[in-house]
Computed example of a mutant assay.
Amino acid sequence: MKKYILSFALVLMSLTAFAQSDYEKIMSEKIGKIEACKTTEEFQALANDFQRIGSKESGQWLPSYYAAFSYIQKGRIMMRDGNMQELDGVAAQAEKYLGTAQNLAGADNAEIHLLKKMAYSLRMMVNPQQRFMTDGVRASEELSRAEKLDPTNPRIALIKAEDTYFTPEQFGGSKTKGIEMFKEAIAKFNAYKPKTALDPNWGRGEAEYFMSLSAEKGR
Protein backbone atom coordinates (compact mmCIF):
# COMPACT_ATOMS: atom_id res chain seq x y z
CA MET A 1 0.00 0.00 0.00
CA LYS A 2 2.80 2.41 0.88
CA LYS A 3 4.36 1.76 -2.52
CA TYR A 4 1.10 2.69 -4.28
CA ILE A 5 0.73 5.85 -2.20
CA LEU A 6 4.29 6.87 -3.00
CA SER A 7 3.76 6.21 -6.71
CA PHE A 8 0.57 8.29 -6.71
CA ALA A 9 2.37 11.14 -4.93
CA LEU A 10 5.18 11.11 -7.49
CA VAL A 11 2.70 11.15 -10.38
CA LEU A 12 0.85 14.06 -8.78
CA MET A 13 4.10 15.99 -8.33
CA SER A 14 5.03 15.37 -11.95
CA LEU A 15 1.65 16.60 -13.19
CA THR A 16 1.92 19.71 -11.02
CA ALA A 17 5.40 20.46 -12.34
CA PHE A 18 4.20 19.94 -15.92
CA ALA A 19 1.24 22.27 -15.39
CA GLN A 20 3.52 24.94 -13.90
CA SER A 21 5.92 24.59 -16.80
CA ASP A 22 3.04 24.92 -19.28
CA TYR A 23 1.77 28.03 -17.47
CA GLU A 24 5.20 29.67 -17.54
CA LYS A 25 5.64 28.84 -21.22
CA ILE A 26 2.36 30.40 -22.36
CA MET A 27 2.80 33.41 -20.06
CA SER A 28 6.29 34.04 -21.43
CA GLU A 29 4.91 33.83 -24.96
CA LYS A 30 2.13 36.35 -24.28
CA ILE A 31 4.36 38.73 -22.28
CA GLY A 32 6.80 38.68 -25.18
CA LYS A 33 4.08 40.08 -27.45
CA ILE A 34 3.49 43.20 -25.36
CA GLU A 35 6.12 45.38 -27.02
CA ALA A 36 5.05 44.22 -30.49
CA CYS A 37 1.46 45.43 -29.99
CA LYS A 38 0.79 48.76 -31.71
CA THR A 39 -3.00 49.02 -32.02
CA THR A 40 -5.99 49.00 -29.70
CA GLU A 41 -7.20 45.80 -31.35
CA GLU A 42 -3.90 44.04 -30.63
CA PHE A 43 -3.92 45.07 -26.98
CA GLN A 44 -7.55 44.00 -26.65
CA ALA A 45 -6.68 40.57 -28.05
CA LEU A 46 -3.77 40.32 -25.63
CA ALA A 47 -5.99 41.30 -22.69
CA ASN A 48 -8.40 38.54 -23.71
CA ASP A 49 -5.53 36.04 -23.82
CA PHE A 50 -4.38 36.95 -20.31
CA GLN A 51 -7.97 36.77 -19.08
CA ARG A 52 -8.27 33.20 -20.37
CA ILE A 53 -4.97 32.24 -18.73
CA GLY A 54 -6.14 33.77 -15.47
CA SER A 55 -9.40 31.82 -15.56
CA LYS A 56 -7.39 28.58 -15.71
CA GLU A 57 -4.72 29.66 -13.22
CA SER A 58 -6.98 31.13 -10.55
CA GLY A 59 -4.26 31.33 -7.92
CA GLN A 60 -1.85 33.41 -10.01
CA TRP A 61 -1.91 37.23 -9.90
CA LEU A 62 0.18 37.95 -12.99
CA PRO A 63 -2.40 37.03 -15.67
CA SER A 64 -4.85 39.56 -14.21
CA TYR A 65 -2.04 42.11 -13.85
CA TYR A 66 -1.11 41.77 -17.51
CA ALA A 67 -4.75 41.85 -18.60
CA ALA A 68 -5.05 45.18 -16.78
CA PHE A 69 -1.79 46.42 -18.29
CA SER A 70 -3.03 45.53 -21.78
CA TYR A 71 -6.20 47.55 -21.21
CA ILE A 72 -4.16 50.50 -19.96
CA GLN A 73 -1.92 50.37 -23.02
CA LYS A 74 -5.05 50.25 -25.17
CA GLY A 75 -6.30 53.35 -23.36
CA ARG A 76 -3.03 55.19 -23.84
CA ILE A 77 -3.26 54.62 -27.61
CA MET A 78 -6.85 55.89 -27.56
CA MET A 79 -5.70 58.95 -25.61
CA ARG A 80 -2.91 59.62 -28.11
CA ASP A 81 -5.47 59.40 -30.94
CA GLY A 82 -7.82 61.82 -29.18
CA ASN A 83 -10.48 59.21 -28.39
CA MET A 84 -11.13 60.38 -24.83
CA GLN A 85 -14.79 59.53 -24.40
CA GLU A 86 -14.22 55.76 -24.19
CA LEU A 87 -11.40 55.94 -21.65
CA ASP A 88 -13.74 55.45 -18.68
CA GLY A 89 -14.78 52.03 -19.97
CA VAL A 90 -11.20 50.96 -20.64
CA ALA A 91 -10.08 52.16 -17.20
CA ALA A 92 -12.97 50.25 -15.60
CA GLN A 93 -11.83 47.03 -17.27
CA ALA A 94 -8.26 47.60 -16.07
CA GLU A 95 -9.47 48.29 -12.53
CA LYS A 96 -11.53 45.09 -12.52
CA TYR A 97 -8.47 42.97 -13.25
CA LEU A 98 -6.31 44.96 -10.86
CA GLY A 99 -8.79 44.16 -8.12
CA THR A 100 -8.39 40.46 -8.87
CA ALA A 101 -4.60 40.77 -9.00
CA GLN A 102 -4.49 42.60 -5.68
CA ASN A 103 -6.71 40.02 -4.00
CA LEU A 104 -4.18 37.37 -5.00
CA ALA A 105 -0.93 39.29 -4.53
CA GLY A 106 -1.82 41.35 -1.46
CA ALA A 107 -2.14 45.08 -0.86
CA ASP A 108 1.59 45.79 -0.71
CA ASN A 109 2.38 45.28 -4.39
CA ALA A 110 4.01 48.33 -5.98
CA GLU A 111 3.42 47.13 -9.54
CA ILE A 112 -0.33 46.92 -8.97
CA HIS A 113 -0.48 50.36 -7.34
CA LEU A 114 1.41 51.81 -10.30
CA LEU A 115 -1.14 50.43 -12.75
CA LYS A 116 -3.92 51.80 -10.55
CA LYS A 117 -2.25 55.18 -10.91
CA MET A 118 -2.21 54.80 -14.68
CA ALA A 119 -5.89 53.78 -14.75
CA TYR A 120 -6.89 56.86 -12.74
CA SER A 121 -4.82 59.01 -15.11
CA LEU A 122 -6.81 57.63 -18.04
CA ARG A 123 -10.05 58.58 -16.30
CA MET A 124 -8.74 62.06 -15.57
CA MET A 125 -7.94 62.67 -19.25
CA VAL A 126 -11.65 62.40 -20.15
CA ASN A 127 -12.02 65.87 -18.63
CA PRO A 128 -8.81 67.06 -16.91
CA GLN A 129 -10.25 70.31 -15.55
CA GLN A 130 -13.21 68.63 -13.88
CA ARG A 131 -11.42 65.47 -12.76
CA PHE A 132 -8.05 66.72 -11.57
CA MET A 133 -9.23 66.97 -7.97
CA THR A 134 -10.78 63.51 -8.03
CA ASP A 135 -9.11 61.05 -10.39
CA GLY A 136 -5.97 63.18 -10.58
CA VAL A 137 -5.58 63.14 -6.80
CA ARG A 138 -6.24 59.39 -6.67
CA ALA A 139 -3.59 58.85 -9.33
CA SER A 140 -1.05 60.80 -7.27
CA GLU A 141 -1.95 58.82 -4.15
CA GLU A 142 -1.44 55.49 -5.93
CA LEU A 143 1.89 56.66 -7.33
CA SER A 144 3.04 57.66 -3.84
CA ARG A 145 2.01 54.26 -2.45
CA ALA A 146 3.91 52.48 -5.21
CA GLU A 147 7.05 54.54 -4.63
CA LYS A 148 6.99 53.95 -0.88
CA LEU A 149 6.70 50.21 -1.44
CA ASP A 150 9.44 49.99 -4.07
CA PRO A 151 11.52 53.19 -4.43
CA THR A 152 14.04 51.56 -6.79
CA ASN A 153 11.37 50.43 -9.27
CA PRO A 154 12.26 51.84 -12.73
CA ARG A 155 8.66 51.81 -13.97
CA ILE A 156 7.68 54.20 -11.21
CA ALA A 157 10.54 56.49 -12.25
CA LEU A 158 9.41 56.18 -15.88
CA ILE A 159 5.81 57.21 -15.21
CA LYS A 160 6.95 60.12 -13.04
CA ALA A 161 9.21 61.25 -15.90
CA GLU A 162 6.35 61.01 -18.41
CA ASP A 163 4.06 63.04 -16.14
CA THR A 164 6.70 65.75 -15.81
CA TYR A 165 7.50 65.73 -19.53
CA PHE A 166 3.89 66.08 -20.69
CA THR A 167 2.60 68.47 -18.01
CA PRO A 168 2.60 72.11 -19.20
CA GLU A 169 5.14 74.35 -17.49
CA GLN A 170 2.40 76.56 -15.99
CA PHE A 171 1.25 73.49 -14.05
CA GLY A 172 4.70 72.47 -12.89
CA GLY A 173 5.84 70.34 -15.81
CA SER A 174 9.09 70.62 -17.75
CA LYS A 175 10.40 68.78 -20.80
CA THR A 176 13.96 69.48 -19.68
CA LYS A 177 13.32 68.09 -16.21
CA GLY A 178 11.43 65.19 -17.75
CA ILE A 179 14.46 64.21 -19.85
CA GLU A 180 16.65 64.22 -16.74
CA MET A 181 14.12 61.97 -15.04
CA PHE A 182 14.14 59.60 -18.02
CA LYS A 183 17.90 59.31 -17.54
CA GLU A 184 17.31 58.39 -13.90
CA ALA A 185 14.73 55.80 -14.99
CA ILE A 186 17.21 54.16 -17.36
CA ALA A 187 19.80 54.01 -14.58
CA LYS A 188 17.22 52.23 -12.43
CA PHE A 189 16.41 49.84 -15.26
CA ASN A 190 20.11 48.97 -15.47
CA ALA A 191 20.18 48.08 -11.78
CA TYR A 192 16.76 46.45 -11.40
CA LYS A 193 16.18 42.70 -11.54
CA PRO A 194 12.64 41.23 -11.65
CA LYS A 195 11.88 38.61 -9.03
CA THR A 196 11.01 36.03 -11.70
CA ALA A 197 11.08 35.80 -15.49
CA LEU A 198 7.33 36.51 -15.55
CA ASP A 199 7.33 39.53 -13.25
CA PRO A 200 6.80 43.00 -14.75
CA ASN A 201 9.79 44.19 -16.74
CA TRP A 202 8.25 46.66 -19.18
CA GLY A 203 9.18 50.30 -19.72
CA ARG A 204 12.84 50.48 -20.73
CA GLY A 205 11.94 50.96 -24.39
CA GLU A 206 9.77 53.98 -23.56
CA ALA A 207 12.51 55.64 -21.53
CA GLU A 208 15.05 55.04 -24.31
CA TYR A 209 12.60 56.42 -26.89
CA PHE A 210 12.29 59.74 -25.05
CA MET A 211 16.05 59.90 -24.64
CA SER A 212 16.45 59.38 -28.40
CA LEU A 213 14.09 62.31 -29.05
CA SER A 214 16.26 64.47 -26.81
CA ALA A 215 19.41 63.35 -28.65
CA GLU A 216 17.86 64.22 -32.02
CA LYS A 217 16.94 67.71 -30.83
CA GLY A 218 20.46 68.24 -29.58
CA ARG A 219 22.02 67.62 -33.00
Rank of each mutant, 00 (worst) to 15 (best):
Y4E: 15
Y4I: 10
S7R: 10
F8E: 10
F8A: 15
V11L: 15
V11W: 11
L12C: 15
L12V: 15
S14V: 04
L15S: 12
S21P: 01
D22W: 11
K25F: 06
S28N: 13
E29D: 09
E29S: 14
K38T: 03
K38L: 03
E41Q: 14
E42S: 02
E42H: 03
Q44A: 08
A45D: 06
L46H: 03
A47M: 07
D49C: 04
D49Q: 06
Q51P: 02
R52S: 09
I53M: 07
G54I: 05
G54F: 08
S55T: 09
E57Q: 12
G59K: 04
Q60T: 09
L62P: 08
P63N: 07
S64H: 13
A67G: 10
Q73I: 00
K74D: 01
R76H: 00
M79S: 00
N83T: 05
N83R: 05
N83E: 02
D88P: 01
D88H: 00
A92Q: 03
Q93P: 01
Q93V: 02
K96N: 06
Y97I: 05
L98D: 07
A101Y: 10
Q102N: 05
L104I: 08
A105G: 12
G106D: 02
N109I: 10
N109Y: 06
E111L: 08
I112M: 10
H113K: 13
L114Y: 05
L114C: 06
L115A: 13
K117N: 13
M118S: 08
S121T: 07
R123P: 00
M124A: 10
N127T: 02
P128N: 07
Q129W: 04
R131S: 01
M133Y: 02
V137W: 03
A139K: 05
S140K: 12
E141F: 12
E142C: 14
E142T: 12
S144Y: 08
A146Y: 13
L149S: 13
P151T: 12
R155H: 04
I159L: 08
A161P: 03
A161N: 05
D163K: 07
D163C: 03
T164V: 12
T167P: 06
Q170N: 12
Q170C: 06
Q170H: 12
Q170W: 11
F171Y: 14
F171P: 05
F171M: 14
G172M: 04
S174C: 02
S174I: 02
K175E: 15
G178T: 07
E180A: 11
F182P: 03
K183R: 06
I186G: 00
N190W: 11
A191N: 13
Y192M: 01
P194Y: 09
A197S: 10
A207L: 02
A207D: 00
E208H: 10
E208D: 13
F210S: 01
M211C: 01
L213E: 14
S214D: 15
A215Y: 01
K217F: 05
K217G: 04
R219W: 03
